[in-house]
Amino acid sequence: MSLGDEHDGASAGGGGTGQTRTRLPDSGAGDVYGVYGGARRPARNSRSLITVVGVVVLLIAAIAFANRSGDGDGDGSSSDAPAGRAAAPTAATGVKPVAGKNGTIPSGYAHDEQGAQSAAANYAVALGSDGMFRQDSRHAIVRAVHDPAVVDGLLGRLDTAYSGAFLKNVGLNEDGSAPDGLTFVSRTVPVGTKVTEQTGDAATVEVWCTGLVGLAGEGSTKPVTETWFTLTQKLKWTGNDWKIESSSQKEGPTPVNGDNRASTADEIAGAVAGYGGFTYAR
């Protein structure tokens, strides 16, 4: 799923106040709310072995440098305007990961900048999950991550958006389940977070994400594709935790595709079944 242009003003589901805007690849459905979307870019030509080795060396050096520079125990929290601030590692240094859960979603974040980033990253994971395509789990997710003041209106818009016709366009059954023999994939993976504004009980956090969406299995006409996007979440401190007031989404930043071959539908389905998603993203 992908969060809509603005929660407050959206008229279709998955976006708006907790909704998501999506372009389904080759589905003919146009822009809809509910799935992180984006067409797969064509693969690049193969590069030389020397180039690949060089990239690996650079990655190893970068990881070593990051590990060395991340030994401090500061939490990086500040009420100052974050403009021009250097990017901080997303390891949960300084503040321990939350111990509480609201259903399956972590809760009880620190009332500071790092807590806001952690909340935004985990909420992106939840809102990008396949649970958003089934009414009961969708309601639980939306209630868990949003400011109670916006929940009821958002749920109505989402239920309208996740109509039987929409789910059919995605390739699902009317109840949101996958057809027999196919595995529905909808996962969002945060790559990094950035606080762009924070004042007391309000914070605006950008979450750079990559996502997977599609149907895996033999005969699928909607194969699993990847997409890159940035979510902007406006968070409010309410009920002793960070909650989403509104959110928006934009495409990218998108890296150039690597030289990896595309896996078979069975390999993707096996990976989805064999590798669990994260419940704590930072």
Rank of each mutant, 00 (worst) to 15 (best):
M1C: 11
M1P: 10
E6M: 10
G14P: 06
G14R: 03
G15N: 09
G16H: 07
Q19C: 07
R23A: 11
Y33N: 10
G37M: 04
G37D: 06
R44W: 05
S46M: 13
S48G: 15
V53D: 12
V57Y: 07
F65M: 12
A66E: 15
G70M: 12
D73G: 06
S77E: 10
S78Y: 02
S78N: 06
S79C: 02
P82W: 08
R85Q: 15
A87Q: 14
P89C: 07
A92C: 11
G94H: 03
P97I: 02
V98M: 04
A110H: 03
Q114V: 00
Q117L: 06
A119Q: 03
A121V: 03
N122I: 01
N122K: 00
V125D: 01
S129V: 03
R138S: 03
I141D: 02
A149Y: 06
G153H: 05
G156V: 11
R157S: 00
R157I: 02
R157M: 02
T160F: 04
F166S: 10
V170N: 08
R187V: 08
R187N: 07
T188V: 13
V189N: 12
P190S: 08
P190D: 09
K194R: 15
E197T: 13
G200Q: 02
G200T: 00
A202T: 14
A203W: 00
A203E: 03
V205Q: 06
V207D: 01
K222P: 07
T225M: 05
I244G: 00
K250G: 06
R261D: 15
I268T: 13
G276S: 09
G277W: 01
Y280N: 08
